[in-house]
Amino acid sequence: MSFLEKIPRLDRRVLYLLVAIAAVVPMFTPLGLPIPTSREVEGLFDYIEELGPGSTVLVAFDFDPQTVGENGPQASGVLRHCFERDVNVLITALSQNAPGMAQEMIETAAAEYDKVNGVDFCYLGYQPYPAIVIMSIGQNFRIPFPQDFYGTPLDSIPLMRAKQNYDDIDLVVSVAAGWVAESWVTYAKERYGCDVALAVTAVQAAQYYTFWNAQQIVGLLPGLKGAAEYQAMMKGAGMSYTDAPLRGMDVQSIEHLLIIAFIVVGNVGFFAERARQRREAAAARAERRGER
């Protein structure tokens, strides 16, 4: 058996080791390659840029710890951008393990920008059954959230006193890792006419280009790449930014090259193996003919 034919039998742990090396090494040697921005990410960034101080954006944490690597930088970027532009923020956490992550991220960002709870932002917290919550907000915030996460009645919160439903907010940004993103489009956008943007895991993003084409969303952040583009735009606009997603894209570059190499090598092995099988089959046929 030749070297090429042995390729398909390579131990999986060798592949894993290569993936691990490709994830670690670029962390120490940043490539610093420029990150080109895309229209769908610019859509959300420009929308928030155009909102004046005092406008309101609802940022929905619709993800669990499983996808924090992708959704975390997205949520953090959008929150910081809103605070940077003095846009008020309402936050919901409709995924069952999201409230703790949302709380940590909001409190960190708020401290950084000197934002006051109840005045500049309001954390509404968790309620089960996202689709029902999204529909209920269309009637009144007080149906699903009689109090905010900290237990303060909504009518006692200065920011919330005059806010009844979607009519009183400018945009919903769903940072999501599941079908909840679609519920925001279906109910908040189509039923109640509120503008929606999606910041979703890359796995989901491919299918949401159809919402983007149909102008059902004002912007789309696909995975870590979307978060990195967003941070690059914040950096370009002179705002403070986090470089974790930007550095992450260096690793992403190397890993993608590695996986493409795996595909190429895997196919070389596949064709070598197929050629060998064909040779053997032809030899066997010739042998049978000889016996006859």
Binding site: Y16, G69, I259, F270
Partner: peptide, 21 residues
């Protein structure tokens, strides 16, 4: 939970090598 899902990076690399023909 975050690490459990990150294991998928290794599996998808392995799948790309073995199954993406």
């Amino acid at each position: 939970y975050a690490t459990m899902f990150s294991l998928l990076a290794f599996y998808i690399a392995s799948a790309a090598f073995r199954a993406f023909k």
